[in-house]
Amino acid sequence: MSRKADEIMAADTLKDAKKLQASFISTEPFQESSKEKEKEKDNNKLFHIHERNVSDEISERTFQDVSLCYQCGKCSAGCPVRYYMDIAPNKVVRFIQLGYYEEALKSETPWLCAGCLACSVRCPKEFDLAKFMDAVREIAIEKGVEIKQENILKFHKAFLDQIKNHGRSYEVGLVAEYKMKTLDLFQDVDSAPGMFLKGKLDLLPHNIKNRKEIKSIFKKTSGKK
């Protein structure tokens, strides 16, 4: 048996072993790569399939291996927002399984996922697809992928900004920021005034006392993984 194999076997934990394995495997395809290939790499900065394994990354973040999925499609069958998606949720998993990371990360599907967990509770393999989608979005953001459903991301950003600043959601601020970001000034014109009239929306935010702590949580978690 080779030295590498010995080293892998000697590793303390499965995780360590996997890391070692990755370190041995990942460099190999590029050792002999031609200049052209290098160029290609530069042109397509985000997706170096062999360099950074998105599927391992997802498995690590979600504590479940993507190979669990046997593509039965039950998740897609029961997904309430399936009709609005560009590709079926099971296909996103398929792309990750096969290494078509770009296709998966650029899909609208993870962004349209409403996180209702219908897929996760019905999955015959007990694969938590909702959690998987969380990781896909997280990685897409980290990699700076162009998000086609940009309004959804803008909404999430605007929402988190309110929390960062006030500690709690501040709907007026949220709507204002969201509208500034999207320049979609007229949507929801029917509901907001109603909310004011009914006294549901407070003009001033509810600031919590320990906003410093919240800010620090945001700061510490904002770094890329």
Binding site: G73, C79, N90
Partner: peptide, 21 residues
């Protein structure tokens, strides 16, 4: 080809929700 996610009854019919994978 696909597992069915849900069956609903509607007006004496059974709505079978699936995905053609």
């Amino acid at each position: 080809r696909g597992r069915v996610s849900r069956i609903y009854e509607e007006d004496g019919k059974y709505i079978v929700k699936g995905e053609d994978t």
